[in-house]
Design a protein around this nucleic acid. Structure first.
Lengths: 144, 144
DNA sequence: TCAGTAACTTGACTCGCTCAAGAAAAGGCG
DNA sequence: CGCCTTTTCTTGAGCGAGTCAAGTTACTGA
């Protein structure tokens, strides 16, 4: 797990000012991958004390814009954030409980970047979401 | 373009009662693929006169649940609906203007259904969203 | 150290959508 | 056909995630 000074380096590398809320948000997302905004606010407040929700929203947007965080929002879920960026991995989402897990790309680094007919669009990213049932929910469904 | 009696048959096939709002919503989505809820409400009201927004929401949910419509909601966009169901096609979304176009699956009918490591999840669907820039926005960006 | 700008606080507000209760109408049955 | 049950629609309030705006605070580079 990276330390506060690692996060500071990340921020400076992105030409962002180093502030306590930013360090705390980065740290929270590293510790809790796929956490929603509310949980992140909770974790940040545990570490820093009072922090406005607006600050967290701002920080999340700044960090996402700078490429330090990635925002994901599967249908029916609120926005979630993760710190694993730049490796083009995907996600599998449980239809039953909403759990999210990481999935490496099965076809190499930048997989399905060719659509069969792209309608003239210039495509720069392919985002894949696998839908299914997580082990816990599968077990629960069988036993019921 | 299907007629009202085609839609009636669709509804009966799904054991749903046949009502004017439902026919109108089905028709609106067929005519305007990828339309958001608000536009659908507008089209429905043009054809039927006064219809409550709640009715449209209910109808959209019923039809989506019955598999007659598909709901898509790319990040940063409100919910949109389309009538093309059951053929596992995907979408390309313009980052600049939000335009959506259909893309057939490049790897066959049910493509990337294997994740490299599925974490024990039972996966039943892979949803792919291509991100890029549409022809109009590409042209606009060059000329500016 | 100081100035200037970026970031944070506070609080109101918007938007998409849902909840709830009652009225209307679809469709099975006599 | 006309009644009865159940589903669907209307009306109107309400909720939650996120945004906007104005003013204060505090990084950072000179």
């Amino acid at each position: 797990m990276p330390t506060a000074s690692d996060f500071e380096r990340l921020l400076r590398g992105a030409s962002l000012r180093v502030t306590a809320p930013r360090i705390a948000v980065l740290s929270a997302v590293h510790e809790h991958p796929h956490a929603d905004t509310d949980s992140i606010i909770g974790v940040v407040r545990q570490n820093l004390g009072a922090v406005s929700h607006q600050a967290v929203y701002d920080v999340l947007r700044a960090l996402t814009g700078a490429g330090l965080l990635r925002r994901i929002e599967p249908q029916g879920s609120v926005a979630r954030y993760e710190a694993r960026v730049g490796d083009n991995h995907h996600h599998v989402v449980c239809r039953s409980c909403g759990a999210i897990a990481d999935v490496d790309c099965s076809v190499g680094a930048a997989p399905c970047l060719d659509a069969s007919d792209d309608h003239g669009f210039v495509i720069d990213e392919a985002e894949v979401i696998y839908w299914g049932t997580c082990p816990e929910c599968t077990t629960a469904a069988k036993s019921s």
